[in-house]
Design a protein around this nucleic acid. Sequence first.
RNA 1: GGCGCGUUCGUCUAUCGGCUAGGACACGGCCCUCUCAAGGCUGAAAGACGGGUUCGAUUCCCGUACGCGCUACCA
Length: 458
Amino acid sequence: MSSSVRVRFAPSPTGYLHIGGARTALFNWLFARHHGGTFLLRVEDTDTARNTQAAVDVIVQGLRWLGLVWDEGPVTSDPDGPSRGDRGPYFQSRRGEIYQRRLQELRDRGLAYDRDGAVYFRMTREPITIPDLIVGDIVRPLTDREQADPDWVLWRSDGQPVFHFVNVVDDLEMSITHVIRGEDHISNTAKHLALFKAFGVEPPKYGHMPLILNEDGTKMSKRDRGAVVTNYQDDGFLPEAVVNYLSLLGWSPADGQELLTVAELVSRFDLDRVNRSAARFDVKKLEALHFEHTRRLAPDAFVSVARPYLVAAGLPLDSFPPEYVSSAILTAQEKGKLFKELPLWTDFFFQPDEAVAFDPEAKAKALTAASLPLLGRLREVFAGVSEFTAPHLEAALKQLAANAGVKVGALVQPCRVACTGKLVGPSLYHLMEVLGPGRVVARLQRAEQDAVLPPAIP
RNA sequence: GGCGCGUUCGUCUAUCGGCUAGGACACGGCCCUCUCAAGGCUGAAAGACGGGUUCGAUUCCCGUACGCGCUACCA
């Protein structure tokens, strides 16, 4: 295959980007990139009034979030807006003249005719063999219904062309070389093949990929939260992880490597290793991949991805020095949590010392009368540390534990709760280094006072 | 109903006739450890069923079961 490869993603704007659609787009994109070909986006908005610009926008944003940029297609979600490429318009709703012309062509050849106000296609009566790059040759005989009347509607009586017709006309006009789509289209392909033949042109090569199912094996509908790409963005998954996970649903590299960067996917992906069976979506595995990709992110990349999620949670990042914000965020990178969960791990960095809320359970466990004297000694030790850095803080704390004859944990937990209000969080020593001596000492002091106070009565 | 596609550990998958069936996620145990994690070691876990073909079938063929898709003047 040469650089003449041209593939497309042709979604219908339904108001959301389906995860299965995203994977179809991904496989097309990877195929194009791998072969140095062209990937185009075409919006199939011939349908009813449900096709709004907002619905197109969801698709455009979703693809961009995943990094699946198209070489040809609309630049914005506006059907009358600018586009890239010389085969436009890329919205079917703006291609009416082309469809009219192609319809006339079929009429002239005697392959289309009117019946009850609609235009019908004179379909072949013979079984059709569908050569498929993924499934292999498929022989599809006529169904019992088609035996009776194989002809089908090209153009509805309400003046609208049907999907099969515009889909083929566009693939033809746009010189699509490979159609990679879901296997729900296998049966339809017989119609498409017949149409290409009617136009007297070589059809594209087809590859039908297996579907994605819910975790319980049922089919995904738009009501399933996991079916909607935007949800993964909102939950704070890294797009690279979603791309990686999606690539593994129905495809695998020869050596079984699972953690793959986008660049690695591009160089290793091809259709010959796409399998034929439907796959269930396993969010646990996605999370594992998210964890791996997140930890490998360059620090500045991690910070810039994380920032919006923290801002959205209401943390006042702008009132702190940028270096402080970055260091604070970075203490949580190794945890690999979803970005939506990040505020829970870093909120204390951005709260006034006196506003850090002690989690009731954490307080009951760690801020006890017994821990009170330890907090005081800890405060003195920290105040006298030569450098306020993680290694020095760790050494100082452990030294104190030894001197006081207590376990390290007996100091760590009260100290953690004093600084963060919680029992879990980033590495204590690193978090204190970022917080700095002023905040740490102040918070230890406050915890000491709080520890002796009786529990508040509501 | 008709036609098509599919069926390997709980899940995603490897295997292109020789398999003591491999890996990953999840799960169990142990170790390590400043919390939670991570990490290291380790354990349990699969060829839907029935017939063929073959010296030999997870791999090839047929049937059955089950799942999914299509069967529209939806896309």
